[in-house]
Amino acid sequence: MKIIVFIKQVPDTATKIVLAPDGKSLDETNVNFVINPYDEFALEEALQIKDRDPLTQVTVISLGVERAQNALRSALAMGADGAVLLKDEALLGSDAGATARVLVAALKDVSFDLLLFGKQGVGLDQGQVDIRVAEALGLPHAGVVVKLEIDGGRAVAEREIEGAHEIMNFALPAVVTAQKGLNEPRYASLKGIMAAKKKPIEIRDCAALGLRADQVGESGSLTRIKKLSLPPARKEGHKIEGDPASQAKELIRLLREEAKAL
């Protein structure tokens, strides 16, 4: 079977976020970029299907800038067969809707049985692109999946819903998004890293995708980022000194007068 995994390169979740001078983007100095962790679950699931059925072809696709090649290279090192980078100046600033339009364009004339995404991309965390792609292609969509079984042309997915798990049974092709718990992503082996060096990364721009500049990027988006701001810094704690009796007394006073909790 043919599986396409969409991956997004995001800042490592341990990154200390610094805003760029334009106030609309991140300062990328000292930022370590990684594959979106939920996308890693999606990729691992595809690779496990490939482990069971070696005829399976796994292709990873990413919309991104030049450095996204590193994320694709990591995916190839983990075991993906092919990689495509959708890269064009005009794509910058695409919102979820425009991004979905680009991904759908990338799927034109491509055969597939399964589209896998992470349940959301850490950073903006909108969790929209996968749903929009499924809608545009008229495919079944199973989101936030923690268990996936493929049998012939059908799939059974177990997904998290509030307070319960829902079992979905649907025909392929379909869109499935991965939640933590679906699997444990593998490490790239040294052999995989060396093999990845020899696998080509196909790069496609708007022209190759058959998209006009006004369909993508900011001009093709219904939303745009006007301003980013950091959450207010937390106020420094207040340490109460002294013996226990006077500490208690001071605490009561502060709770009453400053916190107004009493």
Binding site: Y187, S189, L190, K191, M194
Partner: peptide, 16 residues
């Protein structure tokens, strides 16, 4: 499994 014992083995013999 990670290939650590094949770091200096030529690729045609399965190393990296």
């Amino acid at each position: 499994e990670m290939g650590l014992f094949g770091m200096l083995v030529p690729e045609r013999f399965g190393g990296s």
